[in-house]
Every structure is written in C-alpha cells, then in structure tokens.
Design a protein around this nucleic acid. Structure first.
Lengths: 340, 340
DNA sequence: TTGTATGCGTTATCAT
DNA sequence: ATGATAACGCATACAA
C-alpha cells in the first residue's frame, strides 16, 4: 500500500529516540511520575503529538500492574433496570479513565462464578457486583484478591463495600403514600424471596401498614420475579383470590407493567378501579398507560455511587463530591386519592 | 492463612519448573500449538490443575498480539433496543472465548470518535459499530487498522462488513399489513432523517402504500427521534394537523409507546379509534396497554449475527450455522381490522 | 534531573 | 519433540 518508509510502529522507545532522550524520561512525562526539565518535556510532547503516540495499555498494565479496567457483574444486561445502572457506571468510570467490562450472570450462581473468572483472568483492578447470588463467603474471598463493591445487599469485610438504597424506607414510603391517599386495603406483589432488597422492601411496606393500623393479610401478598410476566401472573393470582383491595404495590416497575396488563385483561381500570404503584422509576414508567406512580430509586445513581465507591477502594483516596442516594415517590397517574 | 511457602504467584514459569519442563512446553500444551509427548502433557496438566493456573491474558496478549476482546460502540447502553442487541453480542462472543467491551457514543460524532480511541488503545481485536454517526470514510479508515462490522447502514470496503435487516422490506410489510386490515389512510412517525435505517423503512412504507394505490401525503409524515418522548411529540403534531387517518405507523416501538400515550391524552383509544404499529418487537411491547402490534426485527439476533460476522473477519474462517435474520409482523392488540 | 538495567508473563523463533 | 532466547512495550528501582 503505502511504500514510503516502513510504517514502523510508534512506541515509547521510538518517541524517546526521536526526542533524543531515554525511554524512562518519556515514561516520566507520560505519567508525571518525576520531575523532568521543562525543555525536555516540551520536546517529548512535541514528538508525541507529531506521531500521535498512544501508550500501549497492555504493556503498561503488564509492567505496572494496573489495567485501569473494572469488571461489572450484572444479572441481565438487557433489563431496563440494570441498563440504567450500567450507564451510570460507564459514565463515572470513563470520566476517571477507567473502562468497565460488563458480563451477565443471569441469576445463576455457577454462571456468575464463571463470569467472575473471566474478569479476573483479564486482570481487572476491581469488581462491581450488582445483586449477585454469590454467597457472602465467596464475595469476601474475592475481596482478598481485589476490591469489591456489592449492591442489593449488605456484605461486610475488608476491601469490600456495600452500596444500596434503603429499601426498607422505600417500602414504608410507598405504603404511607397509599395510606395518605385514603387507601386501606392494599395488596402487594413482592420480589423473589431470595433477593435481599425485595424482602427489605416488603418489610417496610408491611411495617408501615401495621403502624397505621391496616395490617396486610398474608393472602394479599404474592411473590413475583421482578420481571413483567411475573408481575402479570402475580396479579392474576391476586385477582383469583377474590380479595378486597383498592391498591396494589408492585415491588418494581417491571412487575407493575405486567400487573397493569393483567388488570386490564380482567376489565379493571387503573387507577379508577385500583391504584398501582411501583419502584425504580424506570424511564419508561413515564410512558405507560397510565403513566406509573413509583418510588424513585434512580438506578443510574446507584451505578454512579457504586462506581465511585469502587474507585475509592482501588485508588485508596476519597472522591470529593459523592452522589447522594435519594428516594422519593414520583406521583403520576396510576394512583388516585380515595378521599372524597 | 496458609503459611507454608510464600504464596508465590503461579505463573507459566512456575508450572514449568514444577513439571520439570521448559516454559515453551507448557505454552505448547496450553495452546496445543505443537506436538508434545503425551507423558509431558499429562504432567503439565496435573501441575496446572494442582495450582489452578490460569495464564495471564495481558502477558499473552502482549506477546501474541491477540487480546480476545472486541470493542462494541453503541449509542445508548440504556436503551431497550440496544440492550437486547448487546445481550446477543455478549452471548455469542463469550461462547467463542471473546469478551465485548461496551462503550456508548450518544449519537455524538465527537464522543464516538473518543470512545473508539479508548477501545483501540486497549488493543481490541475487532470493532462492532451499532448505528454510528461516523462517516463512511472514518469507518473505512478504521478498517485499515482492525476488522470492523457495522449495523444500521451499508458501508463498503475491505476488512469491513455491514449487517442489517432489510428495513425497506420491513417498511413494506408494515404498510401491507395495515392495508390488508382495511386501512387506507395512514400516518407515519418516522425516525431521524439522518439514520439510514429510518429512511429505508420510510421508503418501504411509502412505496408499498403507493403500490396499493393509497399514496401517503407528506403532511401525514412526522419525524421523531426513535425515543418515547419523540414519538409522543410527533403524535401530538399529527393530531394538531387535523388529518384523517385510521392507523399510524411508528418507525420503532419506543416511539409507538409515546404515540400511544399522546393518543390517550387526547382521548383516542388504541385500537378502537386508531390502530398503531411499531418496529423491533421489544420485549416490553408484549406488556403495553394494549399489547403492541409490531414488525419483529429481533435486536438480539442482529447482535449475534453482527458478532458472528466480526469473528469471521477476525479469525478469517467461516462460522458454520450463521443465524438468519428474520422479519415478520407480530400481531397483537394495537391494530384492528376495518373490514366488515 | 536523567539514563541504565531489569522485570512483567507470555508467545514466537530458532536451534538441537 | 523440546529447550534456550529473544521479543512484546512499558514502568521502575537503581545509579549517576
């Protein structure tokens, strides 16, 4: 093709030669790891620009021990909830020069372990675990090899940090909101029994309802799987039970979507016949029919906060303005007030 | 913990020593790159198992030139459409020992270029570009450095391959379906003018309607942005224009969601007052109110097919049973027949 | 401040 | 079939 001078690969060494300095000097201006005379700095930088030199990250990692990449174990990359979190992670990480490597575990412990191996073999600097099914022990063992941040539950230990919303509080918020709107009989579609966040949320709901004197009967609680179809089925089950309720709490937005459809199929209207509230405030929830009232727990935020925490663990320095995790109910049109 | 001998890092060299062979031999059994006596193979493998040795991918890449990773440039990682495609890509790549590195370009040419740089600096073996805003020239230039696969449009050249659905045909399909259901006056919410797939789709629709003698007036076409809110606004605009139509074609499901809400707000019912059809068959479309009729173009499939093609380019050998890209209309409840 | 030498953990080249 | 030896491209103690 281009037959000029053999297109010799531009390496740090080449730059050094061209600038008339030693490779170490080039490395130093690259990393600002030591003082270099301004004269040489300029010369080196000129050559770098001239050749468009970009250090080979592989070589750098092999020599330096840091890959500037972090592994992210998620359950389903193709889920609206995780997608928003992943975006938060990507944004924050990239801003700090790191790149995320995403893998999905599909709620399967064995697959998760495999995926983690893949990541570790790639020498990631840290691991971000979103709602894993790994045992605490396994995670703590991992933490001996590299910094770990977990979401969706609480795991103690050194070199490991748990980031999460206060799901209990969110649950209370939802229940209290409904109560304040005049609802007394409430049914709930909860998440998988095995998910820590699901159960805190449920406890929050139940405790709050009890507190206001409207204890929720066990029959009014059905377990879903945090997915649309699970919510659909759960709602059908609730309907079959022939209970009396004016509102249903779906423990995440996706299940609320499914519940909404089940209600529709059975001829019930939201919110005229029954009020419906979800959790997460997925972006799509503003566009459902009707737009969904939901407890907002920004999954984007959980992503950025988790990433920030991991970076702190990796670099061992605090990140100044860490994002605050906020929870609030976003009132839209799937709930209505029963008070005259 | 285990205070035996200092927990020396287990490297290929360690394994070699322990097995009483040279490092090269270990490397050979690892890669099956040359004949090794069965006796030694066994011994080496025993030691490998005993120490749980996993080769350092960084070192391997630096020495061998291959990183077994491919870059994936997507527009929005937090979009239902891309999420499904990403899952397809991840599944297929991982099955072949490759890992995808995802970055988002956010429809911004400059950001895209930046992200591509990040990827290249990480020495990816190939690049997968989903609906980029880069120019053909830029992509062709990239293809000189590494294999490239593009979706969403047609780019020619060596070392580069374009994978896409036949959007024109999809458009025709949608139009023809509506016509077959008795619809004559059709409005359309198209995608961004700049998107190649959007315009083919539109042409398909228009051509088909013309073919059946129901030419679509320019007034009945509004441009959206492939997002929910864009669809919402487009539908509002359509409504303002006071046209006469019995069906609207939204050029993707997300815009259909928005359009559905806009219709609802204005007191129109889908499908009683107007039929609505989308494209993509996102998983969520089975759970909208009403469930959405849509032209199914599995984004998961586009992901796997694109990944397969990239692997073919990288490894230079054909993958046997390549997935077929299928397009069909999935009839649900957002459309109704006007006949009889 | 600057340069030299060595190491990071593999693969690849060349002998034997 | 097997083993030395040299890359791969950079960072980093150590020396000067």
């Amino acid at each position: 093709m281009n037959g000029k001078h053999e297109p010799r690969k531009v390496t740090l060494e080449l730059v050094a030669a061209e600038a008339g300095v030693s490779p170490s000097t080039v490395s130093r201006v690259l990393n600002q790891s030591a003082g270099v005379s301004l004269a040489k700095q300029r010369r080196v930088n000129e050559v770098i620009d001239k050749y468009g030199f970009k250090p080979n990250l592989l070589a750098r990692s092999l020599a330096g021990g840091k890959t500037m990449s972090v592994g992210v174990l998620t359950q389903f990359i193709d889920s609206p909830f995780y997608a928003e979190a992943l975006k938060g992670i990507e944004d924050l990480l990239l801003a700090h020069g790191y790149v995320p490597i995403f893998v999905s575990g599909h709620m399967d412990a064995a697959e998760e372990a495999d995926k983690i191996d893949v990541l570790i073999q790639r020498k990631i600097d840290g691991l971000l675990v979103l709602s894993s099914t790994q045992s605490d022990d396994q995670l703590q063992a991992l933490a001996k090899k590299l910094p770990v941040v977990v979401t969706g539950r609480e795991v103690g230990g050194a070199n490991i940090k748990s980031i999460d919303f206060d799901h209990y509080e969110s649950g209370r918020l939802a229940a209290n909101f409904l109560y304040s709107q005049g609802h007394r009989a409430v049914a709930v579609i909860t998440g998988p029994r095995t998910a820590a966040d699901a159960s805190s949320r449920l406890r929050g709901i139940l405790d709050e309802m009890t507190r206001v004197g409207q204890e929720v009967d066990g029959d009014s609680i059905v377990e879903g799987d945090f997915q649309e179809f699970g919510g659909f089925q759960a709602m059908e089950e609730l309907l079959r039970r022939d209970l009396r309720f004016t509102a249903v709490i779906a423990c995440n937005d996706q299940m609320a979507y499914g519940a909404n459809l089940a209600l529709f199929r059975s001829g019930f209207r939201v919110p005229d016949d029954v009020s419906l509230i979800g959790f997460d405030n997925l972006k799509h929830s503003a566009f459902t029919l009707p737009p969904l009232t939901t407890v907002s727990q920004s999954s984007y935020q959980i992503g950025t906060v988790a990433a920030e925490s991991l970076l702190e663990l990796i670099t061992d320095k605090l990140i100044p303005e860490k994002t605050e995790l906020q929870v609030r109910v976003v009132v839209r049109e799937s709930t209505r007030s029963l008070r005259s």
